[in-house]
Amino acid sequence: MPIISARGLSKTYRVADKQPGIGGTLRHFFARRSRDVQAVSEVSFTIEPGEIVGFLGPNGAGKTTTLKMLTGLIHPSAGEVEVAGCAPFRRQAGFLRQITLVMGQKQQLIWDLPPLDSLRVNAAVYGIDDAEAKRRIDELAGMLDLGEELTRPVRKLSLGQRMKAELLAALLHRPAILFLDEPTLGLDVNAQARVREFLADYNRRHGATVLLTSHYMADITALCRRVLLIHQGKLFYDGSLDGLTERLAPHREVRFELRDPPPAAAFASYGAFESQDGQQLRLLVPRSELTATVSRLLADFDVLDLEVSDPPIEEIIGRLFRQGAVS
């Protein structure tokens, strides 16, 4: 029995078409044109309780719009959506108690007060009694490694501390479903890792369902066994992360430095030549031939340095969409 199900979910915005500047405004005033922007179109998927699902796609692909439809902030233009057995856009109290939405750039904590004050408000709003609230705060604070930060005004906290406090506030009512929009945006690497560990831990302890978007591939690889890939409002891929990497990035990138690099053509038999910058070269090599190719390179050339990496997910996705390889 899926906890989230979307069928043919679509959202169209009507946007007025206006040229910039005064001329545009005047022209627009006399002959108003507007066009429909299809932010999300015909998206269908289901998510089972306890899953952690990554939601991927380039900027403006419709990720946030979809999250807002799933939380009930936006009314879908077409299609059906059911979350925890409710129609989200009705925003009934029973539904709201089961979900939470965390947006990396938006904050709900009261800026000039310590997080503890905002937590007290949330406890009252969600009807959690004081003793229980204290117990939950202690538990979550322990998991998030938050201590005296909770008694300092939010404005005095670092971005990472603030994000952790936001998560605490968002999870105090112990929601069964977490919608996370870029929860690690702007955090330093340590803080990102901390948030990631926390989410995995929370999922394990409470069996919560998590749907998360992130620009950082590390978030996705660490947390999600399944990903949804969305582009221009359409769902392109729904499956395991491994499958996605296989499908999207059958190549790995080999970067190496040569003492005396020959012309680019010399590498044709090793892999797809990508770029050269002085002594630095980059090749794309099929995964299956990686080991063989690397040993050949080491044997054939005077290699100073060599590094193998997965191209960044943004790059993979970008290349993929340019090639139109997925349809």
């Binding site: 915005y13 946007v15 007025a16």
Partner: peptide
């Protein structure tokens, strides 16, 4: 951004 381009913005100056 939406507001700026929305119907209301048409009559901005008037």
């Amino acid at each position: 951004r939406f507001w700026a381009t929305s119907l209301a913005a048409d009559l901005e100056y008037q």
